[in-house]
Structures are given as structure tokens and as C-alpha cells.
């Protein structure tokens, strides 16, 4: 099945999570997500998500000049972003457990 619909809902959480420990520019974020197993995440979706989180005040951004090629804009999680990450993680775990339970019951039935 097409997992892109599933991915969409959790992309915010995933992006915040991969930026939690280390700032990164757009392509870093994309690589970390793909490296983490989210192969089907769309390139443009990641960039859109970064901008939305930034506008929501959850990310900081700064431009790092580059000798070759265009300058890179790095994103990092700020305090509000960390708070959101904790909340979302809790919500996700509760949701995931609930869904696990439902799925197990369905399988057992």
C-alpha cells in the first residue's frame, strides 16, 4: 500500500526528532529520515514541513556560506520545538500502543 499518507501525519514528529541532537540543512534531514527507514518520504514534503515548523516557531534557521554551490540554510530545534517533540512523542506512543492493541485483538479474533 501507499505509505505516503501514513507518513504525512508523522512527518512533523520525525523531522523534529532527527534535528533534536544535531542541526542540519534540508538535505541532511532528508538523508537522516531515509537512513532511518522512511524511504518513501517525498523531498518536497520534507522542505515544506521544515518551513511550516519554522513558521510555527519550533525551529531556528541560519545560513552557512559555502565555497562551492549555493549557501546552505541550517535548521535546529529550539526550546518550543523540544517541548513539542516531547508532547508529540508521548501522543505518538499512546496512539501507537492503542493501535497495536487494536491490531493484535483483530489478529487474535
Amino acid at each position: 500500500m501507499d505509505t505516503s499518507q501514513l507518513l504525512k501525519g508523522v512527518l512533523d514528529l520525525a523531522v523534529l526528532a532527527v534535528l533534536k541532537d544535531e542541526d542540519g540543512y534540508g538535505y541532511d534531514v532528508l538523508r537522516r529520515l531515509r537512513g532511518g527507514g522512511m524511504e518513501e518520504v517525498g523531498d518536497a514534503s520534507v522542505y515544506g514541513t521544515l518551513r511550516r515548523l519554522y513558521r510555527a516557531g519550533l525551529l531556528t534557521s541560519y545560513v552557512v556560506p559555502s565555497d562551492e554551490g549555493p549557501h546552505r540554510k541550517y535548521y535546529g530545534v529550539n526550546d518550543a520545538g523540544r517541548e513539542r517533540l516531547v508532547e508529540s512523542e508521548r501522543a505518538w506512543r499512546a496512539f501507537s500502543e492503542a493501535l497495536d492493541g487494536i491490531l493484535r485483538k483483530g489478529a487474535a479474533a
Binding site: 540543512y25 534540508g26 538535505y27 532528508l30 523531498d43 522542505y47 521544515l50 518551513r51 519554522y54 513558521r55 545560513v63 559555502s66 554551490g69 549555493p70 549557501h71 546552505r72 540554510k73
Partner: peptide, 17 residues
């Protein structure tokens, strides 16, 4: 302003791809 910010992300992305 927002468009400029977006293109600042997109440009290096496309170059890299």
C-alpha cells in the same frame, strides 16, 4: 519573503539531487 526562504532551501536541494 516566504518564497525567498523556500527557494533558499530548494536551490541547494535541487543542486544536490
Amino acid at each position: 519573503d516566504e518564497l525567498a526562504e523556500v527557494m533558499e532551501d530548494v536551490e541547494p536541494h535541487l543542486a544536490e539531487v
